[in-house]
Design a binder for these strands. Sequence first.
DNA 1: TTGTATTTTTTTTAATACAATTATATAGTA
DNA 2: TACTATATAATTGTATTAAAAAAAATACAA
Lengths: 228, 228
Amino acid sequence: MSMMKDDEYLPLRDVVFNTLRQEILTGKLKPGERLMEIHLANKLGVSRTPIREAIRKLELEGLVIMIPRRGAEVAQITLKSLQDVMEVRRALDVLAIELACERMEQEDLDSLYQACENFKAAVKTKDTRMLAEADVAFHDKIVLSTGNTRLIQLVSNLSEQMYRYRFEYLKDASSHEMLQQEHLEMYQSILKKDKITAADVVRKHINNQEEAIIKQLQLEKDDRRKNV
Amino acid sequence: MSMMKDDEYLPLRDVVFNTLRQEILTGKLKPGERLMEIHLANKLGVSRTPIREAIRKLELEGLVIMIPRRGAEVAQITLKSLQDVMEVRRALDVLAIELACERMEQEDLDSLYQACENFKAAVKTKDTRMLAEADVAFHDKIVLSTGNTRLIQLVSNLSEQMYRYRFEYLKDASSHEMLQQEHLEMYQSILKKDKITAADVVRKHINNQEEAIIKQLQLEKDDRRKNV
DNA sequence: TTGTATTTTTTTTAATACAATTATATAGTA
DNA sequence: TACTATATAATTGTATTAAAAAAAATACAA
């Protein structure tokens, strides 16, 4: 009698997909690094088939670049690609918060306030990982409240991709206070159903992040120049 | 048949991907229809491997729903899914035209005007296929002029998905004049670099389309009720 | 007839085998 | 040395095979 918790079955291709995705987002797999099938298959203890299927999905997500008959490699992080992502994210986050102003129920609002508080607590701990999670949780609540499946999917995708850049940036403690303040402003404007202010805050929020990340990228570049 | 230039080599998986995608978008493959590997492999004269890889990509695009160990089927068209897509598209098309106002060069503007004229010509022919192509061409020019790779990818994806709904709707000749008029207004506002008007026209454009498509969906529903 | 086991078939999943292509190393030549 | 040609190895692309699971068909009992 197998005590079946078999509900949690995930095809190997999806396990591989999630694994590779995570490694790319956190930087374990570096930009430009080649994804060789046999190599990955051995490393993960599976055959090439699920590896290939996972790579197809990563390709469509833009995390991986395919060159026919040469294979896949981790997409580069460039200033341009960052700006492209941010431009789109800004538009979608503005849409999300505008819809949230229309559609959030009292229950959602309470839960959003709680997320604000959680972020505040995370700032105090200075644990980057917790901070990142609290930040994601806050933004997720807004996007989820729109009820728009497509939007939810796209934003979660884009914002996860940003972690390729953002994770480093969150280590800079000087910005934490500001993030916290902006979260509160977002909450308040949604509470007042004030779309215009809400949109402004979001834009400011994204702009700040973009700026901070660009600074980070610049630093890395300088480092490379010095150290190599 | 190897009459294709070696430069234009496309892996079978991509050929299959494009083929299936097109069949879903045009409705040859109907919502809910199962995509069975051996069947498709025989039909397209390839092995199952490229079929599977193509299905993974369609899955990520949202055109196909995967049920583990049961297989893939064509995603359903519902009023909700249409509204979700349109909500996102509206935001991204507004972004695109705003960026176009900033970034279009004289050359691009001329080419956009040409696209307007082409659409006008297509309206006269009353050939739905030509009309659809001319419409896509016009919108593509705007999006491409932004130079934002990510945006280009997302919009092309979303707008193609709309063809699942829109193709039928374009058969309704009564809307053609209006579409043509709206294209011209877009061109003119980009020419004047008038973001606000441009954004308004785009919103109106999308709203009109959404409305028309909803009407179509409603009709189909009524038809089914009567005929079955 | 209805409901439940049991077997068979179909289908997906995963691994493996083979072919085609590209990258790399080596040897020969000017 | 620099360059080309050729052989060799590594890697991707495609097909096939084998295993696992689900669906369908069948048989049997109430």
